[in-house]
Amino acid sequence: MSVQAAPPLEKPRKRPSAALYEVVVPLLATAGGFLVWEAICRAFGVPAYLVPAPSEILKDTLAIGPTVMGHTLATLKTVLLGFVVSIAISLPLAVLLTASPAIASALYPFLVWTQSIPKVALAPILVVVLGSNELPRVVITVLVAFFPLVISSATGLMSVPPELIELSRACRASKWSELWRIRLPYAIPFIFAGLKVAISLAVVGAVVAEFVNADAGLGFLIVTSTAFFKVPVAFGALIILSIMGVVLFQLVVIAERVFFPWSTGNAMAAS
């Protein structure tokens, strides 16, 4: 008997190399942006308390380097705690939401409600209720970050082809092994889509919380430094925050590529 040849696996075409487009070009573009910024500030003599030049930002931020590092770590701690708690809440919640229509209709109003409250308005109230410590910051971070993760995980759990569910039923599998062996793995690409949004939002949430209640953190640094017109330091904190966001996002992307290589690319199309 004959077997058709497997279609040749799509090899990355010979281009100048993927690294060039993924790393070198974005870095060059960023550096170029900073150069233009520097040039404009110098050419028009923009005062540092309005828009500081990148060189001033670097100088003033490095001058208090250890302090900035402490603030960065404080924010990073809040972001990561908030992110981990978001995952711990969102995945079971998504499983519950997809378990039965009754549970879904009971839970959805609460979910939407948590999202319709402005977190900035909620933050000072939470500080009064929970005290002035890490807890309200993590709670706010979670409130900002968890929702997209729940929604995309729930969508993923529902995206399993009905035939696979029938197959699982035909194998007399328990609901638990159906969840563990079919639904959750199928939801992985959706869960990671949610994780990418959640990690970005966690940074936002942590800064919002620090604006309201903190004695450390980059959000706190921005509030205090602008109060004293140390605008270059505020800009420095801002840049560090954006770098933190990009790095954390990329870590999630890398985690998906390393641990779930089938999830990226056209894994779903192949099934």
């Binding site: 696979l164 035909a170 007399r172 779930f260 089938w262 099934s271």
Partner: peptide, 19 residues
Amino acid sequence: TEPRSETGIVFQAPTLLPW
């Protein structure tokens, strides 16, 4: 009355597990 373990099923789509 319920799926029987001595029955095998093939569907229109292969529905293999991609992972």
